[in-house]
Amino acid sequence: MQIFVKGLTGKTTTLEVEPSDTIENVKAKIQDKTGLPPDQQRLIFAGKQLEDGRTLSDYNIQKESTLHIVWR
């Protein structure tokens, strides 16, 4: 499925993911596209910070959802 990651600059990155992907895995995909290391990424969805060990489905993140990224 496709999801979007929007940064503070307003730039949006598209990712191809599975609902079973962990947040850690998603951060690795973001690094592949942007070069930003996972330890500098904070992902937010529906006002919650996403924890590395959880999956996208744990947070009810579905296709075409938009996550927000904040740099540490």
Rank of each mutant, 00 (worst) to 15 (best):
Q62R: 08
E16P: 03
R54I: 05
T55P: 04
F45W: 08
I23D: 00
G10V: 10
I3F: 01
L50P: 01
E24D: 07
T22L: 11
N60A: 07
T12C: 10
A28K: 15
F45C: 03
T12L: 14
K33Q: 10
K33F: 11
D21Q: 04
S65Q: 07
T13N: 06
G35R: 05
D52Y: 04
P37K: 11
T66Q: 06
I23V: 09
P37Q: 09
E24F: 13
R54M: 12
T34D: 03
Y59V: 02
L15Q: 01
I44Y: 15
D39H: 13
G35T: 03
K6S: 08
T9E: 11
L50H: 00
T14Q: 09
L15C: 02
L56C: 03
E16S: 11
T55C: 05
T22R: 08
Q2R: 14
I61Q: 01
Q40A: 11
G7Y: 14
L36E: 04
T55S: 07
I30N: 01
T9V: 09
I23S: 01
K33I: 13
T55M: 09
R54E: 04
K33S: 10
E16M: 12
D52T: 06
L43E: 00
E24N: 07
I69N: 06
D52L: 05
K27L: 06
D58W: 09
R72E: 15
I44C: 10
V70R: 08
Q49T: 14
A28F: 12
K48D: 05
I3D: 01
G10R: 07
N25S: 14
M1E: 01
Q2H: 12
V5T: 03
I61G: 00
A28M: 14
W71M: 14
G7F: 15
T34G: 04
A46L: 12
Q62K: 11
Q2K: 13
P37I: 07
I44D: 04
W71Y: 13
V70G: 06
W71K: 10
I23G: 01
Q2A: 07
T22I: 05
K63P: 15
N60M: 07
G35Y: 03
L36V: 14
A46T: 05
K6I: 14
L15K: 00
M1H: 04
K6V: 15
K63C: 06
N25C: 09
V5S: 01
N25G: 08
V26R: 00
T22M: 07
Y59C: 02
F45A: 03
H68G: 05
L8G: 08
T55D: 03
E16W: 15
P38C: 06
K6L: 09
L56I: 09
Q2L: 15
I44F: 15
D32R: 12
E64S: 10
G35K: 05
K48Q: 14
